[in-house]
Nucleic acid binder design. Structure first.
Lengths: 347, 347
DNA sequence: GTGAAAGCGCTAACAG
DNA sequence: CTGTTAGCGCTTTCAC
């Protein structure tokens, strides 16, 4: 089949025998139009299979495109998918379409992707910053009125709205729970690189919980991992220590899977475990997993609300919205067996 | 801060004191340009923070936008996220950007979303059809040269390229494996609605495996579920039958989670289980889950390859690519305890 | 009610 | 090497 040219407004107009503007009027329910022309225009549109070219429309109208651009670091991670779902639900009512792309946690790709979103004149830009990315180049678009929201982690080199989980408080609660269960040596396996925002925040929560209980912070009990395999390796390493931890805290959902897998392979059910971010089958594992659950849909929704307020003219200072986490105690945060109640201060 | 107008090509040209076309040439590395003007143009671009308007460019060039539109039914399902990742990796080399949106398994929303993709003149359109959607309206765009690929399920009312898993053969293999383990009464919990393509195909694989082994097809052993909760309920129902199944086959990853959860809650480790589509923690469950694994990244990649070939002028007939599944035997497909080897023909 | 002309931001086609 | 003119498909403005 030969590639038949897509019909344009002019084609429709010619078919009906009216001007292009009349067709435009009918389609956009702009100005008035007689029922008959209306009828005939609609018929011609259907007959030719005409579809208005949104790009041409937007270019003339001058306004932004009716889209929300979202950049995430990993499409396969359901956390980000659920965040995206929350955004989409919230912006759909305003006639905005969510467009999502992946940076693969690479600053270069993130930059390319955000630039194509900017070039497409999205109405709102949302970014889960890749580690090491700088967002100074967003200053001008933001000054030009583009709402920019960072998700999960704050952006660098640009003050903009930001929506994050209560990382610090959440981890604090989870670790405090382990301490209440009698654990004194608690390992922490966080994201890599170590300077990643979420890693730093969550580690801070870990440290504050230890401090609150008067427990020493032992660096050898902390490790970093990127991906399941390295998380499993870190688990093995920590448990192989001379004075090994009796409990572990996993700093994100991917790390959690690696730790859970390794603990299962090594048949170490004696090791207590709490993870940050819920897992689909957490309650089915044996033991069921105690987690500090995030609320990804709420994060997406909060981001959308913030951005829409900006679109509506909110010019107040940039704000950071913190979405609370929730400690879900299941079986894996088992008490320390020989229930010592005295705190060992030797460090 | 007042909303400063986004600078245009003309602004840059004025700043430098050259014509718009010259700026355009420098930016697109079209025709030649003297090093000095080049330098000065680039400086002005940086100074003004100019970002070319892609919409205006595309409209002039007439060609399609350099984007791939993808519609999936559920952003939170990692299966689709991984498919999307496969697509993105494959099209990025061609300078195409993946834009993904969700239909929420609703034909109406799918229609709206595909239409906005069409209006945006995407280069390629990929759709995981929502149940009940009709895709006849894609005939004209396809005739106009737009590559259209259906993923996971074929589209309705339109013959186009399609990439699916080997649903039938995969389930056949999984069920045959259960039969080889001595099971004679095997329950099947598939997608809902019952007429969904994947449900039908997978059920057919189930039936063919039974037939091959000379086992009767007992409708009461089949059920449908949509979401984890209903899958759990279906599990309970099947196991409560007078002559209950000794093994279950779960028809997709979401159903699988519901079944696994229910089996765990009911402490029914005696029931053998095989699921369609792998789960993140499958090997960590107790028993570890035997699955018929799909290859979502390969599905995405195959779809991208097909579409790119079309873009390159491939005008051959629509084809359906079947991506093979792989039976991964882990612990959950346990043999039937009192190992009967005779086939019960009573039905 | 409808149409003609101009122009959105950019590039193709032709000069020079 | 660079500028001019025209025009992509649509909407705005202003006329009738």
């Amino acid at each position: 089949m030969a590639a038949t040219r897509r019909p344009t407004l002019a084609d429709v107009a010619r078919e009906v025998g009216v001007s292009a503007k009349t067709v435009s009027r009918v389609l956009n329910e702009d100005g008035p139009s007689s029922p008959q022309t209306r009828e005939r225009v609609l018929a011609a549109v259907a007959k030719l299979g005409f579809q208005p070219n949104l790009m041409a429309r937007n270019i003339r109208v001058g306004g932004p495109d009716t889209t929300v651009g979202l950049v995430v670091p990993d499409l396969g991670n359901p956390f980000f998918g659920t965040v995206a779902g929350g955004i989409e639900d919230a912006v759909r009512a305003r006639g905005l379409t969510l467009l999502m792309g992946s940076s693969a946690e690479d600053p270069e790709r993130e930059h390319v992707l955000t630039r194509t979103f900017l070039a497409r004149r999205v109405s709102i830009l949302m970014v889960v910053p890749a580690f090491g990315a700088d967002h100074g180049y967003l200053k001008a678009p933001r000054a030009a009125g583009l709402p920019v929201v960072f998700l999960d982690r704050p952006g660098i080199g640009l003050s903009a709205d930001c929506v994050v989980s209560s990382n610090r408080a959440g981890v604090h609660e989870g670790v405090a729970h382990l301490i209440a269960q009698g654990h004194r040596r608690i390992g922490f396996i966080g994201d890599l690189p170590a300077k990643l925002y979420t890693r730093r925040e969550r580690l801070a929560g870990y440290r504050s919980a230890l401090a609150e209980a008067g427990l020493p912070y032992d660096r050898t009990l902390t490790a970093g991992a990127h991906g399941q395999e390295t998380a499993a390796a870190a688990t093995t390493e920590l448990l192989g220590l001379p004075d090994p931890p009796t409990a572990l805290f996993a700093g994100n959902n991917i790390v959690a899977m690696g730790v859970v897998a390794q603990l299962a392979r090594a048949a170490r059910k004696d090791v207590a475990l709490v993870t940050f971010d819920d897992l689909p089958l957490a309650e089915v594992l044996e033991p069921a997993l105690t987690v500090v659950a995030q609320d990804p849909a709420a994060i997406g929704e909060a981001a959308a609300r913030t951005a829409l307020a900006r679109l509506d003219g909110d010019r107040s200072r940039s704000r950071t919205v913190t979405v609370p986490t929730r400690l879900v105690v299941r079986g894996s945060s088992r008490p320390l067996r020989p229930a010592r109640t005295a705190v060992d201060m030797s460090g």
